[in-house]
Write a protein that binds this DNA or RNA. Structure first.
Lengths: 204, 204, 204, 204
DNA sequence: TATGAATGAGGGTTCATTCAT
DNA sequence: CATGAATGAACCCTCATTCAT
């Protein structure tokens, strides 16, 4: 990568980082492009060299940040040598919840903007260069388990939406209960969702 | 109610109705107060006699519209003489889903703004005059069933968040599957949630 | 007219006058709406209460200014009791040329934007309240003369375009000759145009 | 011409052609230098190696395009062996009108920017290499005719301005009449202009 | 000669809010 | 209570121009 390309990447990264910081501290609606460029230390026009508008940079951030999160979670699964499928899922969920609990701003940012549609774009068809394809990882996890599942996509969908929406309220507002109280109920429900999508093991 | 009070109520109602129409047709961000007052046929200043700002009128609408929805659903439960608790819950969910499927704009409006926090304000502490206290109804339903539940609030929370977030994606975008395909999975999960919160019947 | 209406008219007039001054001193392209409102002493938003954009106010000015000009010219015809048709036309043209020669900024403004199309809108269907319908006056002048003309509209068109385009160059740049030198050639041509559209007098 | 020079000429020509296309399709005001270089396939900076700004390239195009037009018209005069002076003028005017009628974009471009001043620069002192000096041709035509004219420059001026301004309206908007209806009136007027500038033939 | 990333002043426009009527 | 003209800060975005490569 030449000096020029490096400089370009630095500018773009600076914009992304600054935008993220502003989005989580003062919200997207209240963050202006003027704010972003001022804090990033670039000229206004430069923003438009890299992004279409505020929502373009937001979408790229969602993709990137959620990819990072799931990537870390999956690495932890590997590092801890979790074997069984349902344990892995619970582990990932628990890991993600703990991360979001530590980083509430990230939770605000992601949950307010996340949805299955964005999630698919973000994780299944990663937009950014280095981003990971989490759905593929998920399918591999299923394959490596000895079980067979019906409608694995719906199963993932149910789990993701349930976790995403309940965490938001519980972590940020302790409503209806704080996250530690919610967890057992949540994991119980997740195990039930997995169980009910599992084809009866065909033993012989 | 005097003639003047009636006139006042008409103006306020006109603003509420107009705002709702605009919110669901062009989104909240793109709806201006000018739009609202122009379509409502009142002067700009009048808006500020009744509401603080755009978000004030939005919150009142969320409360009102979700209250209406659950109220209708509950009446249908009574009319259909559903007896068992879990059947009632499924019936209500199914009723609400069908309503939202028929009225996608309402779904967009509610789901984009709904959360357990707002829901509580809306349904548990109804803001508007005629609005119904759904949480009380829910507790009555539990009481009338012969069962005992642990943490009924968490149970309701889990169900509401699960239904809310999955429906949004499924009804509006058929993602990951269309609502008719999703329903059995959803209801299965809901029954599991209920079952796992049910205290072992204490027979004697 | 109430106090409020009067105030409104003052604001609009102030904008029109200021815009005209700026248009003729620094050109339309280089005049910004910020300039106009700043000099008019009103807020930026006020501009948009009365005009759509810069071109809207320009068109209204063209109509108004050319109406004024022709109105003055025609009044001079009456005051000087010019009788014959061709003399009246020459008188009007001469009057207008002298006015434009005295007020070169007005010439710049009008000629750069005038065309038969705009002229028709401006003079034949006067947009502003008090503006005069010059085309009707022209037809009256024909009627009052004892002559009959074929295609009087084309005749007027030829004269107007000829005068408009030659004056611009001659008055502003003395190109190819100064206006006093041009005049006899021009009036000669105009008389020829009139003569060749005149039906042979039917004497008896 | 060396390879490098050829390359240079290609870049300049590409810019000229692209600019012309954009000027006539979307207007000068709405054409940006970015547009031009993007479509021409050269870098932004390259533009400034050949032209001062947008108006510089516009002026060069006006010169070139009008030179081309009159050159073609004059060649047609020669090819058709038109002998008499006034017939030649009418022929040229007619040829030019027909060309502009076939190529309305060119008419828009030229008429919106043409004036005697620009015309002189363009035709009398041709800017571009290959461009023809039409005024010299005109003077030759006069010389070859056996007639003597007073103020031939004014005569040409009157004709050009008359034709230019009336055609614009007639061809583009059919106002006040379509060009075929206008033509006889126009040519009649032109013949009158010529006749009135002709010195009484000095017979002996 | 040629490039094109970077600039940043300044353009048009919107709109929540006020306040004299 | 009701009005709606007026405000003006703040927004997004463009684009001519430069200059290090």
């Amino acid at each position: 990568m030449g000096k020029l390309d490096l400089n370009k990447k630095q500018k773009k990264d600076s914009l992304l980082n600054t935008a993220f910081d502003l989005f989580i501290t003062q919200g997207i609606n209240k963050t202006t492009i003027s704010d972003i460029v001022k804090n990033a230390g670039v000229a206004k026009g430069t923003f438009y060299l890299y992004f279409k508008d505020k929502y373009d940079i937001r979408n790229k951030l969602i993709s990137h940040k959620s990819s990072q999160l799931f990537s870390k979670a999956h690495n932890a699964v590997l590092a801890n040598k979790i074997e069984k499928f349902d344990d892995s899922i619970i582990f990932i969920v628990d890991y993600v919840i703990d991360e979001l609990n530590k980083n509430k701003s990230l939770l605000t940012f992601l949950s307010k903007n996340l949805s299955w549609g964005v999630f698919k774009k973000a994780l299944i068809n990663p937009a950014l260069d280095s981003d990971v394809n989490f759905y593929e990882i998920y399918l591999n996890m299923i394959e490596n388990s000895k079980c067979v599942f019906i409608e694995p996509e719906i199963m993932l969908f149910l789990i993701l939406e349930l976790v995403g929406s309940t965490c938001y309220s519980s972590i940020l507002y302790n409503e209806p209960v704080e996250i530690s109280v919610l967890k057992p109920h949540l994991y119980d429900t997740i195990r039930n969702i997995i169980k009910s999508h599992q084809k009866p093991e065909d033993e012989s």
